[in-house]
């Protein structure tokens, strides 16, 4: 008996977590997938009716706005954060004496809750007393910066705050990457008199391709899950002009009482995440198991 126990302890200890993951991740995904195929409204129904919820979803203008916003937000957020992060990493890599302090400053927003970030930027960008009022106070009477209350521009306000929060993190990723590049090659290139910018462009950056991929995956994942920032900064408004799939799903689930729409929008979100992450995880796991 004790021999059996001794032999099976690893399995016994792993079992509860495994069971939890099976039920609360995979089981729940299955539940949501099932409900997304029914006519559920305020209460879940379990008779499968086909794709009516998805048809409703794709016909809803609000969902259109949410997906369009995700596209604009995602692309701008990822591209600008990567450019900014790479630039800062390269500049910081030039033997700066106060590198440690600067790194700490660049990265601290990542420790904040998105709700705090949203609250702060909401105040800074509010036209009445924020940046707009400040610049007008300096004598530029016609200066206007009212993105946050302009339905066409509010999503860019969300982009600004999101970049502020995450670009320092991208910097840290790239800096770690820069430090792991073989210094011998760089030294050799220096000796050959190749200018620094060319060394970066043709040696350093290409060797960091995996880090670009990681940064892209992480940022894309952050973008799709963005919820708190929008809630705190614009509340999805004006109107629903800054809705993202995550806020759409939440509104359907908890304030509109439309479980069918909530489930189908959650499934679409998951499909988007998986389209990005599955190929990445697959290649990662395959490399590791070899």
């Amino acid at each position: 008996m004790s021999k059996w126990l001794e032999h099976n302890i690893p399995r016994i200890l792993l079992a509860p977590s495994f069971a939890a993951v099976v039920v609360f991740v995979y089981g729940f995904i299955a539940w949501t997938a099932w409900v997304s195929l029914t006519r559920s409204r305020l209460l879940p129904k379990y008779e499968i009716e086909g794709f009516i919820q998805y048809e409703r979803l794709f016909a809803a203008p609000r969902w259109d706005t949410a997906m369009e916003n995700l596209f604009i937000f995602g692309i701008l957020f990822i591209v600008v954060s990567m450019i900014l992060g790479l630039l800062l990493a390269i500049l910081l890599d030039q033997q700066i004496r106060i590198e440690g302090a600067l790194r700490t400053i660049y990265l601290y927003p990542m420790a904040l809750s998105m709700i705090v970030t949203g609250t702060s930027w909401k105040w800074i960008m509010n036209p009445g007393l924020g940046i707009e009022a400040m610049v007008r106070g300096w004598g530029f009477e016609n200066f206007s910066f009212d993105w946050i209350i302009d339905p066409d521009k509010a999503i860019y306000a969300v982009v600004v705050a999101a970049i502020w929060q995450a670009s320092g993190f991208v910097m840290a990723l790239f800096l770690a990457g820069l430090r792991s590049v073989d210094t011998e090659i760089i030294k050799a290139a220096r000796v050959d008199g190749i200018p620094t910018w060319r060394i970066y462009l043709s040696i350093v950056i290409p060797s960091m391709a995996p880090i670009f991929l990681s940064a892209f995956i992480i940022l894309a994942h952050l973008a799709i899950k963005s919820f708190d920032l929008v809630i705190a900064l614009t509340g999805g408004g004006p109107g629903y002009s800054t809705d993202l799939p995550a806020t759409y799903m939440y509104a359907m689930a908890f304030s509109r009482g439309d479980i069918g729409q909530a489930a189908s929008s959650a499934m679409v979100m998951m499909a988007v995440v998986f389209a990005i992450i599955v190929p990445y995880l697959y290649s990662e796991l395959r490399v590791k198991n070899d």
Binding site: V25, F28, I29, W31, P44, I224, K225, A253, A266, M269
Partner: peptide
């Protein structure tokens, strides 16, 4: 692998259940 996968799901997909 199954656990790792679970890290990446958007939590919206488990909110209702």
């Amino acid at each position: 692998s199954l656990m790792l996968f679970g890290c990446f799901i958007p939590f919206q997909v488990v909110l209702l259940p």
